[in-house]
């Protein structure tokens, strides 16, 4: 606006009033720079606006199902099955939460889920960290074959290994225990953990370790004192993925658990019966079940971001 005003003044300078000739080119240049800067600013602003819009669309796409679940958990029974569906409850109620949490076995299933997820996460990390370190540092052919083979296990449909795994656990006397389920869940998260950790170890310069060994560290000492602190963000990311894989897993839990170790995903699924679907209670329990994961993610947010960007500073 100010630029526009100045331009008008210059153009309309009264006759006889001389404008310093020496100043003219500089003024023009300033004006041009001003116009360019304004143009750049406007361009940046519109790019930013576009990004925000895209971000908002993505947020809505990802967040809407969860928000819908959350709103449904506060709806009355008739609202949950409204045709056409409504997004917001017409009448807010906590009845679904009372029903869901009052159902027998829900609290026990939460404890089972926590136990199973913790054991599975620790198992995954304990196995994946040394495996990934060995593969990335020694770069042997067998290591490369191993990491590809680990990926192949992810390509097998879980149901194909679920039934044999259940039989194996029964043979070992581990039926219906969180340990059995944790081991089963580790088969899902371990390949992913190895791959993730490998990429994080790749990003750590070898010089760091060599410096540590020069300072008197053993190989294991260098790993523990130098490398692992550097990839702690990556470990956090891997832990979150392993925890989530176990926390949300359904099929193995269905096949391997009964009275003592049933996890919450199976209990949530139990709200859909042959005789009807209790949407309200189901969504209420699902909403409660998602709280620990949200808290965990928020607590480890910094580490996760650091882990995500670890590869970006490579070299």
């Amino acid at each position: 606006m100010r630029v526009a005003e100045r331009t008008t003044q210059d153009a309309g300078a009264p006759a006889g009033v001389s404008v310093e000739p020496a100043l003219r080119p500089a003024t023009r240049a300033r004006k041009r720079r001003g116009v360019n800067r304004e143009g750049l600013e406007a361009g940046r602003r519109s790019t930013r606006t576009l990004l925000w819009i895209l971000l908002a669309v993505a947020m809505v796409l990802y967040g809407f199902p969860f928000l819908y679940l959350l709103f449904t958990s506060f709806k009355t029974p008739i609202d949950t099955i409204a045709v056409p569906p409504t997004i917001l409850p017409r009448e807010w109620t906590l009845e679904n939460y009372t029903n869901a949490l009052g159902r027998s076995g829900v609290v026990a299933s939460f404890i089972n889920s926590i136990q199973t997820a913790i054991i599975s996460t620790v198992l995954s990390l304990v196995l994946a960290v040394p495996a990934a370190y060995g593969i990335t540092r020694y770069k042997t052919l067998s290591g490369r074959i191993f990491i590809m083979a680990a990926l192949v296990t992810r390509m097998v449909p879980p149901v194909a290994i679920g039934i044999p795994l259940a039989s194996m656990m029964a043979t070992m006397g581990l039926s219906d225990t969180p340990i059995a389920l944790s081991i089963a869940h580790t088969t899902i998260s371990l390949p992913l953990s190895i791959w993730l950790m490998s990429s994080f170890f790749e990003a750590v310069p070898k010089d760091l370790e060599e410096a540590a060994t020069v300072d008197g560290c053993s190989r294991i000492g260098a790993l523990w004192r130098v490398v692992i602190p550097v990839v702690s963000g990556g470990i956090a990311v891997t832990a979150i993925f392993a925890f989530l894989a176990s926390w949300n897993e359904f099929l193995f839990a269905l096949l391997m658990t009964a009275i003592r170790s049933q996890t919450t995903p199976v209990v949530i699924a139990n709200f859909q019966t042959q005789f009807g679907l209790d949407w309200g209670s189901m969504t209420a329990l699902a909403a409660v079940y998602s709280i620990p994961v949200i808290i965990l993610t928020l607590l480890l947010q910094r580490k996760i971001v650091a882990g995500m960007t670890l590869g970006a500073v490579k070299g």
Binding site: P178, I179, A258, R260
Partner: peptide, 18 residues
Amino acid sequence: TAVALVATGCGAGGPSAT
């Protein structure tokens, strides 16, 4: 893990073995 492992000895569901 230790707590979880100890706890899994009986499982949270509680009742006797199947």
